[in-house]
Each structure stands twice: as structure tokens, then as C-alpha cells.
Amino acid sequence: TQIINSLSEVSGRYKALFVDLWGCVHNGITAFPDAVAALQAYRKQGGIVVLVTNSPKPRAGVAAQLGQFNVPDDAYDTISTSGDSARAAMFTGAVGTSVYFMGEWERDAGFFEPLHVIHEPVEITRVPLKEAEGIVCCGPFDTMADPEVNQADFLYAKQMGMKLLCANPDIVVDRGEKREWCAGALARLYTEMGGESLYFGKPHPPIYDLARRRLTELGHDFADSEILAIGDGPHTDIAGAMGESIDSLFITGGLAARETKTSVQPDADALQTYLAHEQSAPTYAIGFLR
């Protein structure tokens, strides 16, 4: 893994970027100016930026949120979300038609909006757990509560043979200085308890298939060798890129800032130790996207 000082050192080798959002472009509250500037500069040189996020929101919802976080429209070309990949599966009946919803309804209601790219979508009804055929999980009811508070419900769901559709495979995110649980933590618990969880975001293939379709929508057909994935999650962003044979840039100042001793740049020895422990092998590493 090569430590670099700026995206521009290597960006000329790639025609498109698959860029994670949380921890790379913004912190859940506001944009990182240097990251925005780096993406703007890359686009001015003709590069295509696809934001690839494990957000359970539809693409339009993420775009609206980016505006609230002061991420300008000229920093990216298009968006691929875990939510859109998972919605497509839900509307094909992957977890049944009567589903138990987990998440914050005011935030996640868009997940249930019609998805017109599905041929003959099934009609989805939200019901209490005891009436459900499956679970749709966009996140915890309380992002600060230990996922194990759901054990009783999960035990019942497992015994009934329900599948859990996970709209966001992230385990945790940092909102400013506060670390919060995500849907991935609940799906992991459900799997550990013997239930079946279905994943659609990073590091799983469906979201990368969607990202490539987004490139096709823009009129591009790039080889995997012409794409660079950027992210701060070794088990999502980097593992996904490795699985897709895509080069990757690991942002060490995000989730792994403490382990990699990142202030401005990672400590080389600490980075090597961390990556060996996580069995991760990004192509490049940098403290923060810039």
C-alpha cells in the first residue's frame, strides 16, 4: 500500500472514481473542503465521479442531504446508493410482501417509494413483527443503543424463518465526534443468531453493478482497471474494491484514525500493522481526501 499526499498524484491513471461519502467527503454534519476541492479538480480534468454510498436513502434523498452538508453539485456526476440496490430487491419480493420495518421513518420513508425500474413490482405493506414475512432494516430505532436490544425480536424472527434485508451494511459511522450504529450491526447480529441477512451495499456486488450502470447512463463503459474506489472502511469500501478487482485509496483519517495514528497522514508502521490485522490491501492510502 503506497502512502500518497494528494489524489492528484494518482488520479490521472483513472477515468472514474467510486467515492464513499461518510468519513471521506463529509462527516455527517458538513463537507470536508479539501475533499470537495479534490473531486472538483478531478472532474475539471475530465474524470467522472460516482458517489457510492451505503446510505439506505434513494439517490434523490442522498443528493438532497449533500446539499444540506454543503457538498456542491459540481463535486460529483452521479450517485449509487445501497438503498436503491436494496429497494430493487424488496420490490421483487426478496423478503415477502408484508414486512417489519426497522429504522427512523421520518428519515427512511423514501425507501418505500415506488421504484419504476422494476418490472411488475410487488406491493409492500409495513406490518408489526408478528404479522411479517420478513424484515426491512434501514437502521436501528436508536442509533446509540447496543444492537443486542433487538435479540428477543430477532430470536422470534429467526424461528419464523424471516429474512432480514439490510439497506446499509455499515456497522458504525461517525457523525461529527459521535459514533453511531448502522443497519449492518443489526444484520450482523441477526446472522450471528442464525438468521439470514441479505446485503446490497459495499462490499457486496449489487451496489457495484449499480455504480457501473450509473456510468453507462452517462455514456461511459470503463474497464475495472480504469476505476479507483475511495473510502475509509476496510471491510466495506476496500474489501468491496478488492472483490471487484478495482484499485482503492484508503482514507485513514476516518474510521481508522486512531489505529493508523492519523493526524494529517497515517503513521507508516501503524498503517501496516492495522492493514495486516484487518487483512486489507488497498492500493494507496492517505490521511484525508485532498
Rank of each mutant, 00 (worst) to 15 (best):
P205E: 14
G47K: 09
A229E: 01
K261Y: 09
A185P: 06
D170A: 08
P266T: 08
N27Q: 06
E120P: 01
E177Y: 04
V122G: 03
S98A: 14
E244N: 13
V25A: 11
Q68G: 04
R126D: 01
G12S: 15
F288P: 00
S11C: 10
K202T: 03
V127T: 10
M162E: 06
L51G: 09
D153K: 14
E123W: 04
Y14G: 04
D74Y: 10
A152T: 14
T260W: 03
P206V: 08
R290K: 14
M144Y: 11
R258H: 14
E131D: 14
G28P: 12
P234S: 06
E9Q: 14
R188W: 10
Q40W: 03
M242N: 15
F288G: 01
G240Q: 08
Y208I: 01
T1L: 13
S225M: 03
T81M: 00
V36H: 07
F101P: 04
K130R: 11
T273S: 11
A183Q: 05
V50F: 09
T262F: 10
R258N: 15
D73Y: 06
L289I: 09
I135W: 01
V49M: 06
F200A: 02
H119I: 06
V10G: 04
A241I: 04
L17G: 12
H26E: 10
L115I: 12
Y42R: 06
I238C: 04
